[in-house]
Design a protein around this nucleic acid. Structure first.
Lengths: 158, 158
DNA sequence: CATAAATAGAACTAATCTAGTACTGATTAG
DNA sequence: CTAATCAGTACTAGATTAGTTCTATTTATG
């Protein structure tokens, strides 16, 4: 349906593992072992997350990475955004709308920002703290909400 | 942040143009002209949308495509889903989770379905009818909602 | 009923993007 | 001083996307 890269996927996994480390720094190598992911990949991802200020890094012998903020203050949107760049859901819905040759008829200004906001709100509503609890943290609802019901809900979020 | 393909992008544009056609069928060529998109691409997309039962097609001389349902009953999720296949936000969050070698530690069963549901709900809440109105259909809110506020809102939708 | 206008479907190609690797440099505890 | 560790950049192979091309089928209309 909608794709995020594997980097972001791994990134979330690594962040949840770091959450469980409870503040003590973990080296890239340790996290790679724990996550069964190739070390170079893990290194690359952690570096990116550190540059985005989601992680703090400590160099040297006993160094490693740790969360820069408490896990309730880090959202899925933060992590995914850091790893996929700030680019938007589709090209010309990003910042530079200038080069768009079909500005008049594509109506980007209409629907894409709306969709973007909705997705962003959805991702921002999910915290790392929640994601680190694998067990269902709240009861599932067994009647799927009607579309209009959801519309009303997300409506307010957009 | 999160990407959808250009096909889906074009697809939404074409669907909004069809919405404005008010029930009368439009040929692929006419839509291509109106949207300033290459005809073969437009053809391909319309065919896919028709196969997904979002459009009905009429062959022959005065033929063309028209919406299969009223635009309030078609969501962004329908269109994007039809054009990108039913595949999920990341590989092993889809149906075949069997081959996943890191089933134990990846905790996919925890966070990805949650994120998927949130995004799907967001996309399902946006109807083609809304998207076809380029002018802001509802007043913008000028204070961005706090994270917890959004969390509570989307929470109920997931 | 012949023809032109249209959709149906599959196959193919080039360009772009992703995933993953490799290498070199900088920092720091012991 | 040295080994462990992060920082940054550049590169490659494979996968995916974007777009085209070609052939077949349907059907309104003169």
């Amino acid at each position: 349906m909608i794709r995020i890269t594997r980097e972001a996927d791994y990134g979330i996994l690594l962040m949840t593992n770091l959450t469980r480390a409870e503040g003590q720094p973990r080296s890239a190598a340790a996290l790679a072992r724990q996550s069964h992911l190739p070390l170079p990949m893990v290194s690359k991802i952690l570096k990116t997350l550190a540059r985005a200020s989601l992680l703090t890094s400590q160099r040297g012998v006993q160094g490693g990475y740790s969360l820069a903020r408490p896990p309730v203050e880090i959202s899925a949107a933060d992590i995914i955004g850091a790893l996929e760049g700030p680019l938007a859901i589709t090209e010309c819905s990003g910042e530079s709308h200038d080069g768009c040759s079909r500005q008049d008829e594509c109506e980007v200004s209409g629907h894409w920002p709306r969709i973007n906001r909705a997705i962003h709100a959805a991702l921002q509503s999910i915290s790392l703290a929640e994601m680190s609890r694998p067990d269902a943290p709240r009861p599932l609802r067994f009647h799927s909400p009607s579309r209009t019901e959801i519309a009303g809900i997300v409506d307010r979020a957009v």
